[in-house]
Design a protein around this nucleic acid. Structure first.
Lengths: 208, 208
DNA sequence: AGTTTCATACCGACTAGACGGTTTGTAAAT
DNA sequence: ATTTACAAACCGTCTAGTCGGTATGAAACT
């Protein structure tokens, strides 16, 4: 099925991709509609045909980003994990490996936007909150199962730990942007790994 | 010494305070010079008399914010700590207690700005990096001393742990902004506390 | 003591350009 | 014939930054 020059699905996807890239680089406010149109190779008319306004595009981009993040849980390295605990560490390792690349390609669109517009654009904030919270939610069952296996009586909640992993990841991105280097983010994820080992000790071993 | 209507030091301070508040609420790009002037109760002429441009103000605000953050280490609760380990936990407890208040009053100007302008305004990024890195640096000696006391042979570096504390704090702010509630940030700092207990075990006790 | 000089501190109208969004027009598909 | 999918000129608003001007006070000069 050859695609013609006029392909609304493709146009929309190009706009979302261009917006995602630009916002990850410059933030939501500094990214102009003209910027996005130019990067996507479409006209302003096309932009406002597909999206009511700039805010609507941001929300759609946030939803698309969250959907892609959810796909992380389908990664082969997670499926290969024999236990919930292994699966959790496979997730963190995957996140770590994803830090290899250009800054704007590895950082989180949701964290970037919500920090900027949490007060001024509640609809965007909610979309970001849903994405981040939903992603954390995707970890809760795994963490709960690992807890049942390794620390059934511990006084922490799987949901709280899941949110903490996202906090560490988001904070790691901020340090990386400040330092101009993702290495510091890798370091922080290593601390997260160590913490999770501490929360989920394997019998007959110490969490060093 | 009664102050006259013309007081450059006061004018500058008012501009810095107004800018800090506005940027914490809306971000650097969305905060206009007119906004800041109105909030500070000064004219645009005064603004550009004291600062070369908007970027220069942001850098000055970042430096002032970092200086105030450095004062945290003078807090009585830290001085009262008997050991480096106690001092470290007093710091985290202090950061936790500081989360009680309006969102824009508790979040970090540096983390907010650097996430937005890391690519577009290198000078601001550097000022933020210096502030965050410097604050982390203020913890390194304490962490190193605590390590010497409680985990001399452990395979982690005090500097890396210090940076990780800042990553957790920054990430906690992002989750808080997304959720519209600082409670999730408190939770994350509690996990940080637990991690530090795990890194610095007290003899004859488990890190539960 | 009175006057001139000068730098600092500040005011607010103004400008040039960028911005989000609208409108008008058109061409393909159904 | 109507709807969909775009193109691009256009519009009012907002922006950072400029500029000519004024008020103040201290120092220099007479």
């Amino acid at each position: 099925m050859p695609r013609t020059a006029r392909n609304p699905v493709d146009t929309r996807r190009r706009l979302l991709e261009a917006a995602t890239r630009a916002i990850r680089e410059k933030g939501f406010v500094a990214t102009s509609v003209d910027d996005i149109c130019a990067a996507a190779g479409v006209s302003k008319g096309a932009f406002f045909h597909h999206f009511a306004d700039k805010e609507a595009l941001a929300i759609a981009a946030a939803e698309a980003f969250a959907a892609r993040a959810a796909e992380l849980f389908d990664d082969p390295s997670l499926d290969a994990a024999a236990t919930p605990r292994d699966r959790l560490f496979a997730y963190v390792a995957l996140r770590k490996s994803m830090l290899d690349g250009e800054m704007a390609d590895v950082t989180c669109l949701l964290g970037t936007m919500v920090q900027e517009v949490w007060e001024t654009h509640p609809a965007i904030r909610d979309a970001c909150a849903l994405g981040i919270g939903g992603h954390a939610g995707g970890l809760v069952d795994t963490i709960a199962a690992a807890k049942a296996d390794h620390a059934p009586g511990a006084d922490w909640e799987p949901e709280s730990v899941a949110l903490h992993t996202q906090a560490v990841i988001q904070g790691a991105f901020i340090l990386a942007k400040a330092a101009g280097d993702t290495a510091v983010a890798v370091d922080s994820l290593s601390h997260l790994e160590r913490y999770l080992k501490c929360l989920l000790p394997v019998a007959g071993s110490r969490g060093g």
